[in-house]
Design a protein around this nucleic acid. Structure first.
Length: 544
RNA sequence: GCCCUCGUAGUUCAAUGGAUAGAACAAGUGCCUCCUAAGCAUUAGAUGCAGGUUCGAUUCCUGCCGAGGGCACCA
């Protein structure tokens, strides 16, 4: 499909040249109405104004000229209403694509955009103050799926987790554990103001008690270090359950220890971008269009998050990635421009940094919103969600909506969903197809050789063939837009076409030739589905 | 008050500026002596409001209304 598209593109360009028409940025896309053809261009519409002619007239001139450049696979060029030029592609083209799919197998649909390039995807990055919640879940799944999408284009991807185990929140966490610890020893509970109230704090206190007995003194560093250890361990376990593995964990503390932060401050000072006022250090965000300047270093001497974040991004740039992606929740939308601005001011190129802002998840139970707060211990953990509905559903639900649209996650629906679930629709197609292949293997002849693709001409066969040949374009679009939903949309439509094919074209029949051809189509369908599932990180069950 | 994202069918969501706005769930009606009915077929049903740009707007711009999230010496 790609090749035929580009050959049409080149032909049109040549024609425009021949006719001395201006070359516009025209499109070649499948028309919404299939009857019009397989591909369609808007070039005549775009030229109408420049040439002061009606698009239909221009279209006719272009088509006449296009006919001088015949293409083996284009069987018809037509002109419709407002001025679209439509191309019908020979079924043979799509039949031949099937050979390519079988040949490439696990690699079918991969792109080469990222070949030889390195990418860094930072996601989750939750500080170890408590278990991962459903909110973190969307971040985790988006980040991991984006990573898969990049790998599918050939990128060498580093999945990175950035955290801070030295801030105020961690101190409060330690104090909370300490309070619970002494409560377990029979003292009155004195949770700190703003303390963490979740039950997991009691569990941590209990394991400290088991390990250290009652010897710990108030203010012991064990309260924090043990909490961090336990929570981080749990976080990694939760992610692992979802099939997510990080390559790097970067601690904010690094940049204090290695001098990067001091360096950053002095570099910004040199650029005259920071100044002191009222005992604090301020960053001139107003010079980048912000309403007011922001505090960089508090009067207490503690830097605000902008400082280490900027140092961290500088570090990422230094590591020489071709692409750097940050996955942030909507609450960070206002913060990251400061980081980018600072980097630009310091002379760093930031075009290769893409910040992905996703909108929040609203959890619904019994039709009502659940308001969550880690601090109050009032949340649904990711673990709980996974154990309730399973990995495949969690992964799929979090990316089935566009990244920048709010996501409603209905717990009742997800738990009792089982047979109405959109994930099962896809997986069922795969299971069905595996069953056909299993039956095929029991036939007394070899189903994998000597098939005649020309026999695949039923409407539902052609529709399926056409869609599989477009898979690489969808994978590429998912990369270009950094939008996993493009893959889920593709798989939904692909599965629908497969189910229709299944209902209208019986595969295994007494007609050996037709059986062989259709088995080839089913094998190719399996490849497309499986590869799509691989990008999404969901399983491809052989039976259901 | 200012900034960001989103307003599409009863509900949850699609639609690289294009042609007749697509699905799923919910509602109605059909289809298993036939490779898995977790399926297929079929009937109804929608672009928040008002302007603007364009040959052409769900998409871009302005205003209003509504939802979520930001506007801290929190991250």
């Amino acid at each position: 499909m790609l090749t035929i598209k580009s050959s049409i593109y080149l032909s049109i360009k040549k024609v425009l040249n021949n006719l001395s028409f201006p070359v516009k940025d025209f499109s070649i896309i499948p028309p919404k109405i299939p009857e019009f053809g397989d591909l369609s261009s808007n070039i005549a519409l775009l030229l109408a104004k420049d040439l002061n002619k009606s698009p239909m007239d221009i279209g006719q001139i272009i088509i006449k000229e296009l006919n001088n450049y015949p293409n083996d696979y284009i069987v018809d060029i037509s002109l419709t209403k407002p001025g679209f030029i439509n191309f019908k592609i020979d079924n043979q083209f799509f039949q031949n694509q099937l050979l390519e799919i079988l040949e490439k197998n696990d690699n079918y649909g991969k792109g080469i955009i990222g070949e030889g390039k390195k990418a860094n995807v930072e996601f989750v990055s939750a500080n170890p103050t408590g278990p991962l919640t459903v909110g973190h879940g969307r971040n985790a799944i988006i980040g991991d799926t984006i990573s898969n999408i990049l790998e599918w284009q050939g990128f060498d991807v580093v999945r990175e987790y950035y955290f801070n185990d030295a801030g105020r929140q961690m101190r409060i966490l330690a104090k909370s554990v300490e309070a619970r610890y002494f409560e377990l020893l029979g003292q009155n509970l004195q949770l700190p103001e703003d303390g963490y109230q979740g039950d997991y704090i009691i569990d941590i206190a209990q394991s400290l008690l088991n390990e250290k007995g009652s010897e710990l003194k108030p203010g012991s560093k064990w309260f924090q270090s043990k909490s961090e250890e336990i929570i981080f361990h749990d976080i990694k376990e939760s992610l692992l359950k979802l099939g997510i593995n990080f390559d790097e964990f970067v601690n904010e503390k690094t940049f204090y220890d290695n001098g990067d932060i001091d360096q950053l401050i002095s570099d910004l000072k040199e650029k005259d971008l920071i100044y002191e006022k009222e005992n604090a250090v301020w960053f001139k965000t107003s010079s980048f269009g912000d309403a007011k300047d922001r505090v960089y270093i508090k009067s207490s001497g503690e830097p605000t998050y902008r400082v280490p974040d900027t140092a961290y991004h500088r570090y990422k740039i230094k590591r020489g990635y071709d692409l750097i992606i940050d996955v942030f929740g909507a609450d960070h939308a206002d913060a990251y421009p400061d980081v980018i601005n600072a980097l630009n001011a310091l002379g760093h190129k930031t075009n290769h940094i893409k910040v992905l802002i996703y909108q929040f998840v609203t959890l619904l139970r019994s039709g009502k919103k659940i308001k969550m707060s880690t601090r109050k211990g009032d949340f649904v953990t990711l673990d709980k969600l996974v154990s309730e509905v399973g990995v495949d559903i969690v992964r799929y639900f979090f990316i089935m909506r566009s990244v920048n649209s709010h996501l409603d996650f209905d717990l009742d629906l997800a738990t009792e969903y089982s047979d109405k679930n959109p994930v099962y629709y896809l997986q069922y197609a795969h299971a069905r197809l595996c069953n056909i292949l299993a039956r095929g293997n029991n036939l007394e002849y070899d189903i994998t050789t000597g098939f005649n693709l020309k026999l695949l001409k039923h409407e539902n066969e052609i529709l399926l063939l056409k869609y599989m040949s477009i898979f690489p374009e969808y994978a590429e679009n998912a990369y270009l837009n950094l939008e996993p939903q493009i893959i889920t949309n593709f798989l939904q439509e692909f599965s629908a076409r497969f189910h229709k094919f299944y209902n209208n074209c019986r595969v295994i029949t007494d007609d050996v030739e037709l059986t062989k051809a259709r088995i080839a189509l089913v094998r190719a369908s399996k490849i497309v589905l499986k590869n799509g599932f691989r990008i999404l990180g969901i399983s491809a069950p052989e039976r259901m």
